[in-house]
Design a protein around this nucleic acid. Structure first.
Lengths: 209, 209
DNA sequence: TAGATTGTTAATCGATTAACAATC
DNA sequence: TAGATTGTTAATCGATTAACAATC
């Protein structure tokens, strides 16, 4: 399979979500035109996107919702499970830990680490928050390939060196530390909430101007 | 000023962040080449991006860090302040409320609303959480142009109708409800954490395959 | 001045959109 | 079969990259 552009990949989760909704509301087939309306896209783009991975449709009929959803789930790799640890049990870490259904997103959260002694020992989604000086032992003793980083930039910098040294290459990064620039064989998905707000700010002002 | 592409806009917060870092570490000028290295971009792109808004550089010298940073802040509109209300004081809402320095991002968080009686009356970043049936009175009595939505899709659907009716057109949306599709004169910045994780999942599997 | 680096135009590359033959 | 809709190729559009004259 040839390289898929990042634009297409970033649309896959939306296809997946909308197809799940359609399936749940009992729709069993959909045309590229209708799917495009839902996606705020075009029929052409829908067909191009899906054809990156195979011919899932049927001429004259459309796409079968349930099996297309399943296919996209498989393409995304949601059927695999990556063991992940969460670093930072502050407000953001606790929100992330409790808010998402990792199992249906291709991950399993197996441990949570925190520096602040007040938080160590508390429970989050059935997991006891451990001290951050147990990280090394834990990663050596357990299969972990992904780290979720919900701590500030300054704390990430020294930590990432340790994690990288322990072989962790996949990061879901909420901090402003630029992991991919330091370690170029990592896979990093950044979530920069402040950037998102600034973008909103720009668009509001642009609109008012 | 002619229309700026969304790609350029989404890069502006990163320029702003990195320039802030550079300024804080005492750097007073930078070339497009060096800035490109920091941005994981190209010198050409940096110059093209900045020239969308004006000639901030000086031939033979580069760009003055402090004033460029200030300019980009102004372009983003961070000097304006948009009053925002937060809807949903669950885990995610509390994290958002406490995690970000809204003032430096162009916003001011002025009120928080929540349905769950256990949370009403609690304090978050110095703001008392109000009952969600006070929303209408509050928005009518105060200047609010933006809503941060940290509640589930099903709760957003009925709420958005009310907010839209009250004249709120700008949304920072963490839910899966597709606001822009329902109301096409709104400005919506979506943060879909699940989508981000699925994208990470894809990229990990693609890499392992 | 000479060297450096921008601002800007031109070339390239890739993504989106359009068109239509294939086919269910 | 006729109508509908895909799969896929071609055309267009826009973003990125390269090049270089302008100039500090």
């Amino acid at each position: 399979m040839k390289d898929i552009s990042i634009q297409v990949i970033k649309r896959l989760p939306r296809y997946y979500r909308f197809l799940t909704e359609l399936e749940n509301s009992g729709v069993d087939k959909i045309s590229s035109t209708k799917l495009a309306q839902i996606m705020s896209s075009t029929a052409s783009q829908v067909r191009q996107d899906l054809n990156c991975f195979g011919g899932f449709g049927q001429q004259g009929y459309g796409y079968p919702v349930a099996s297309l959803r399943k296919e996209i789930g498989r393409i995304l790799g949601l059927d695999h499970t990556h063991n992940a640890i969460l670093l930072g049990a502050g407000n953001l870490g606790r929100a992330i830990a409790t808010h998402l259904n990792f199992e249906s997103l291709g991950f399993k959260l197996t441990a949570i680490f925190e520096k602040d002694k007040k938080l160590i020992g508390t429970m989050l989604r059935g997991i006891e928050v451990k001290s951050d000086n147990e990280i090394e032992d834990y990663v050596r003793g357990n299969q972990v390939d992904t780290a979720f980083l919900t701590l500030p930039k300054d704390s990430v910098e020294p930590l990432i060196e340790k994690l990288y040294g322990l072989g962790i290459r996949n990061y879901w990064n909420f901090s402003h530390f630029d992991i991919a620039r330091e370690y170029n064989d990592t896979i990093v998905e950044n979530v920069h909430l402040g950037d998102s707000l600034m973008t909103l700010c720009y668009r509001i002002n642009e609109n008012n101007q």
